[in-house]
Simulated assay, not measured.
Amino acid sequence: MSAPPAPPVRVPAWSLSRSAIWLWVTQGVIGTLVYGVLVAVLVLGVPASTGGPLPVLRWLLPVLLAVYAVVAIGVRPWIRYRVHRWEVTEETVHALTGWLTRTWTLVPVARIQTVDVTRGVLQQLYGLASVAVLTASSQGTVRVPHLEVAVAHRVADDLARRAEQVRDEAT
C-alpha cells in the first residue's frame, strides 16, 4: 500500500475571527501599561542632576514606550490578522502563523491523536477559542488561535470524528 500523495503547499484559505484584532489590541494596551509603569519608575527614580547616560533615559524611555505603543496597539494587530491563516481539508490541517517569523504547519488527519479547544481570559472576553491539534510528534502540533467559539467547537468535533474514522479504517 503506497502513501497518499503530499498535499500542495499553499496559503490556507481562512482567516481568524475579526475579534482577534481587538484581543491583540487589548494585549498591546496591557503590555504598554506594564511597560509604562516600569518606565515611570525608572524615569522618576533617576535624579535629574545625575550625570552620565542616565539623564538621556528620562526622555529616551518615554519615546521608546510611545513607539512600542504605536506598534503594539496600532500596527501589530492588523498585520497579524492579515497573515494568520488556517484551513482544514479532507486530509490535512494547515496553519500559517507569525507576523515577523512565518511558520507554516501541516498535520495529516491520520496523525491526529488529540484535539483540544482552549479559552483564555481575554479570549472569553471576546468570544474566542483556540484549537490545538496534537500528534505524537512534538513538531506536529497545529494551533489555530482566536476562532469564534462555535467555529472552534465545530472544527474540533469534525477533526476528532475524522481522525477516529481514519484509525478505524486502519485496523
Rank of each mutant, 00 (worst) to 15 (best):
S2L: 10
P5E: 12
A6F: 02
P8H: 06
V9C: 03
V9F: 10
V11E: 15
S19W: 05
A20P: 10
I21L: 05
L23D: 03
V25K: 02
V25D: 04
G28L: 03
G31W: 01
T32P: 03
L33C: 15
Y35A: 15
V37D: 03
V37S: 03
L42D: 04
L44A: 12
G45Q: 07
G45K: 08
A48G: 12
G52P: 02
L57Q: 03
R58M: 06
L64Q: 05
V67L: 15
V70S: 03
V71E: 02
I73D: 01
G74H: 05
R76Q: 14
P77L: 02
P77K: 03
I79M: 04
Y81I: 04
R82W: 12
H84E: 12
E90H: 08
E91N: 07
E91W: 03
T92V: 14
V93R: 00
H94C: 02
L96M: 14
G98W: 01
W99L: 11
T103P: 00
T105E: 09
L106M: 14
V107P: 03
P108D: 04
A110E: 02
R111W: 09
V115N: 03
R119M: 10
R119I: 07
G120W: 02
Q123I: 02
L125I: 13
Y126S: 07
G127Q: 05
L128Q: 04
A129F: 01
A132S: 15
T135S: 15
S138C: 00
T141N: 10
R143G: 09
E148M: 08
V149R: 14
D157A: 15
D157V: 06
R161W: 00
R162M: 03
R162G: 01
R162K: 06
E164H: 09
V166E: 06
